[in-house]
Design a protein around this nucleic acid. Structure first.
Length: 268
DNA sequence: AATCGTTCCTGATAGC
DNA sequence: TGCTATCAGGAACGAT
């Protein structure tokens, strides 16, 4: 599942591969996943690629923006010039961009939860304003983090970490990894966290995200970036594992309706 | 305003 | 072998 590190990896690759090029035209195949407005793009220059949380923003000329949410199984492919054009007809291709250098960029979605929309500047701003601060943004300070947790007193710390309106970028995998590293149980209510625990959690959350970016994300089940698979699955300490790093057997429980792994001995 | 449960969607897997 | 039921989960939405 793409979370911040996976999305960051993809954005870096989009910068390398498609920024500076021009979209000659776009074909929308799955109208549930992608807005048919995309087909109005003709000779649109790609100015930049960035992200906020898990949302990918591709800036085009004339004040237009492609906003992409990968959700569970969304991913991009980039086929160099000379690739047979029927890549666009393959199963699960939701959108194909035909670029001026003859290469193809496709957005693929198996489970059809992902979304791609073409927005103007104001609409983009509205969409981004719904999100909390990006976890790796400078403004996401320890104090900011504390204030967020204090706003959500009754909910569990894991649910708060995953709430994109509160802070942007963390999903099911990294929430669990950060909580294990900070030795905090995912079921703990926010109001019960001490100042030291919050500081620990803040530090471990940033550390695990930075480390995962370095390894180009975690590949379990579906996630692939544009150039292959991530490597962080080899460094996971709790997610879908049987024993923690201390050799204790891990428990699995549903927290917020999601499978959650934790160590009853290391985490308090 | 915060919180909780439900829904979307399809491939993989378990069970018979 | 082949069928059916269950599970995975990010985010929007409605209800409380």
């Amino acid at each position: 599942m793409p979370e911040l590190p996976e999305v960051e990896t993809i954005v870096q690759q989009l910068r390398k591969r498609v920024v500076g090029k021009t979209i000659k035209r776009a074909a929308v195949k799955d109208r549930k996943v992608a807005d048919t407005k995309l087909e109005t793009l003709v000779s649109a220059r790609i100015l930049s690629a960035s992200r906020k949380g898990k949302i990918i923003i591709i800036e085009l000329d004339k004040g237009r923006f492609l906003l992409t949410e990968l959700r569970m199984t969304g991913h991009f492919h980039h086929y160099p010039k000379g690739t047979v054009a029927d890549k666009a007809e393959e199963k699960y291709v939701a959108v194909t961009f035909f670029l001026n250098d003859g290469s193809l960029l496709t957005f693929n979605e198996v489970r059809r939860f992902g979304r791609m929309r073409l927005l103007g500047k104001e609409q983009l701003q509205q969409a981004l304003d719904k999100l909390g601060r990006d976890v790796l943004a400078k403004e996401f300070t320890l104090n900011a983090f504390r204030q967020l947790l204090e706003k959500r007193k009754k909910t569990t710390v894991k649910i708060a970490l995953m709430d994109q309106h509160l802070l942007a970028g963390v999903g099911n995998i990294y929430a669990q990894e950060a909580l294990y590293r900070a030795k905090i149980l995912p079921q703990r209510k926010n109001a019960t966290l001490s100042a030291a625990e919050m500081q620990n959690l803040y530090r471990e959350l940033l550390a695990v995200l930075h480390l995962a970016v370095k390894h180009r994300g975690t590949t379990v089940e579906n996630y692939v970036h544009i150039e292959g698979s991530g490597g962080f699955q080899n460094y996971l300490q709790v997610y879908q594992r049987e024993k923690c790093s201390q050799g204790h057997p891990l428990k699995k429980e549903y927290v917020g309706g999601r499978g959650t792994y934790y160590c009853g001995k290391c985490q308090r």
